[in-house]
Design a protein around this nucleic acid. Sequence first.
RNA 1: GCGGCGGUACCGAAGCGGUCCAACGGGUUGGAUUUAGACUCCAAUGGCUUAGUGCCCACGCAGGUUCGAAUCCUGUCCGCCGCACCA
Length: 933
Amino acid sequence: MAFDLHKIARRWQRKWKAQKVYESDPDGRPKFLVCTPYPYVNGLLHIGHTYTYMRVDAFARYKRLRGMNVLFPFAWHATGTPIEAAAKRVEEGEPTQLQSLELMGFGKDQLEQFKDPIHWIKTFSREAERDLRAYGMAIDWRRQFITTSLNPRYSKFIKWQFNTLKKKGLIAKGEHPVVWCPRELMPVGDHARSEGEGVMPEEMVLIKFRTNGHVFPCATFRPETVFGVTNIWVNPDLTYVEASVDGEHWMVSEPALAKLKDQKHEVKELQRRKGSDLVGAKVKNPVDGNEVPVLPASFVSAETGTGVVMSVPAHAPFDYLALRELQQQNYAGTQDIKPVSLVAVEGLGEFPAIDAVKGITNAKDPRAKDATQEVYKKEFHSGKLKDITGKYKGLSIQEAKPRIIADLKSEGKAVVLFELIEPVICRCLTRCHVRIVDNQWFLKYGSQEWKQEAMKALQGLKLYPEKVRGQFEYVVDWLRDWACTREFGLGTDLPWDKNWKIESLSDSTIYPAFYTLVHTLKKVPLGKINDRLFDYVFLGEGNPDELGVDRVLLDKMKAEFAYWYPVDFRNSGKDLVQNHLTFYLFNHVACFPEKFWPAGIGVNGYVTIGSKKMSKSKGNFKTLRQVIDAFSPDVVRLAILASNEEMNDVDWDSESAESLRQKLAQWYEFALKNYGKNGQSGERREIDRWMEHQLHSSIRDATKAMDETLFRTAIQRGFFDVQRHLKWYQRRTAGQMNQEVLNEIIEAQTLLLAPFCPHVCSEIWEKLGKQSVLVSEKWPQFDESKIVPTLEQSEDAMSRTLDDIQQVLRLAKVEHPKKITLFVSADWKVHLCRKLKELLAQTRDIGQVMKGVMGEFKDRAQEASALVQKFVKDPSKVPLSAMPQDAEVQNLLDAVPFLKETLNCSIEVVREEDSQEPKARQALPGKPAIVVQ
RNA sequence: GCGGCGGUACCGAAGCGGUCCAACGGGUUGGAUUUAGACUCCAAUGGCUUAGUGCCCACGCAGGUUCGAAUCCUGUCCGCCGCACCA
């Protein structure tokens, strides 16, 4: 039989397109709006996108089968810098960029066109649409669009969003520190660094020690230790700059000057000074007025802080080591310097730094660094400031630190310097520092009121799975103001300031609202689209007659939005919880009334390939089209969704995909061959009822799983289990299956599989002779009355008996038995077991149990007491489903033809009490004694 | 450091106080079928053992609670993800 999954897929995709099956408009049914963050169109879709979209699609198809009017829209994201940057690299002829395009299948002659960012956007949105159609996504393609000013209608929508936020006071101007490349004059995000991933700006305090007109700004992370300063350090081998900083004469290292300039200080270089020239000066400690000397230390680096540091030998191991070295060299003026202790820590001595450096002889020893951390950790967590700190005495470091910083700043004794603790190197190989960017617009996610509203939205939200809630709560709480404008890149202009573009994560938060009306909005003349129009269609505000737009169109859009909103399911990878998905919540609560707040969010793990992280550079990478071409869309979808669920990573494994391909082929063949033939129907046998039981409990479980987007469970219960039971049913009836039952299985199985493998299931449905289109059919209902656990128990008992027989045969080394006799446990044992179960629930005392039992079984005292002893010893051995002897005998008699066939010998079923065979006594309820001959 | 999620057989993974066996899928091994292979079917896949359906060991590690623990408690070790100006 010709079975070509690719051909089947193409055929159904053509049909769906022609019949506009997935173009959804409001009607009388309950609605369900699903979506997923649109992809950034700078390359081909890869298998990682696949999983997220697949979940949305499977859920959409399921809800459709449940009778809902489902809308699944899609669009393309082009906002931001990467596409522009890539186009620029093509223009510069950068080899890796060109190569990567070639790897995506573009010929050398086509590369030229990629100099133009618009070509990227057009090409990759087109290619992605092609891939997603080939994947069989149930998307309403009428609603697709592209972001940025290339789509003026979208830009107008985004402007409405920003004006709305601004009106509500949720956007404000401010300044903030960024990691900055002084060569490219750009902020340098993690992905644009060649070194220093994850390093972020941290606040250092520059405490101003003064001497006759000069300032020595000592950079420190521990400003509270200023009370224990004995001297300050400069590195004699460095070059320092004497500079005018905000009108004062500062001494700083060369690199520090650029940092100060970029952190909003007025800076002018006056002259260069050798470090060694500075040594020997006396400077005044700003907190106590003490004069301390400037001493030389080689551990001081030019790159961190200012190249000037204060020395607190009591609490800083480096300082102590350097000081001790000088004293050992009899360096002038150091002999009288004594460490000054200012922090008391229980369990540590007066000078924790001195204790910490035991065995370390100089500041170059790497252990000095560990010692520093050790001391700091202890002091920070359990230290108390001593009397010497004046008004801060008795405070913990945690309490005192922010107060000391604030006080020093307000008294003009210190300023803050943002610093990178570890080096950060830009992709252009320049060392970065922190710059304070001003004139920047912020979304005030840090605002408490806004957070509260977002938290409220979160509380009313269905999460798939529920266990991400903790993460969301944390992020809502932790989120700070977000810089939402950029000077570079593609996007929409900030409506009130054309010099800025709206940043890419900020223009993609409430756009699902845009999906609901985009195809209608296309009919409105561009010039007529403005904030007032959106106020009317989204919020019902204003007078529609003043908009100069066809009232029918306006009210259509208004109704469409109100019908589809809120979003019932928005799904993405777990990496977006800490930004996009949370922004999505914040912006919805700000822009829309509560009834339109998000109703459901789904989060999933990543895709690995062969259990290894996907990585382009390591070649462990697959595009969507590669896997579709190799395995067909149905197999890819099934393989990925069957692999894992919740937040676990799914794995793409070609071996299991191949195995699933075969399973699908087998099902296709089975369904077509067995459906609606003239098989026996009529009265149901036990085994038929068993099969119905299995089918209906599988439907029940699969349905429950589908409701929670637990697709792996749904596939396991709704496909693997049904298939397994069907095989057993086939074997158990020697192929004489009940035709009605069989038909029901075939229909239900095809529907259960439909959300995952829509093409092949549609094909089967059609070939079964169904007039309806599968994708609009009804999800199978389970019939509670057909779920009868006792059927399962007796069938299990039978199959366990078969297992036991086979084991006995093996042990007895009988290869070809002539006859097998099964002795069924006497009824009194059934009663005994039931009684025991009752008693054991109350007590484990053997005496009491014995007492409770033996009255009833006096005439079998010996046998009964042996059983009681055995079961009290291990209560888990009591047969749970002890059925009466008659029923067990009947159950086995029913199975005799099957057992005969399987074991290839005659089978006899005998009641225990009817036999003289000694082994017969071993029978237990549900566990017949076995004799083989 | 802070926050989140986890450690179960060869691999992935379910189980979350007792449901006579630690599901299900993949892999591996043996057998049946086949001219052969593929497919399909049956069986095995921690150890031991036997004319008897059994015993023992195992759910990161160590303790504890309980008649009974993969599951509950305490401690401990180890992974993965995120910590932002950006898709």
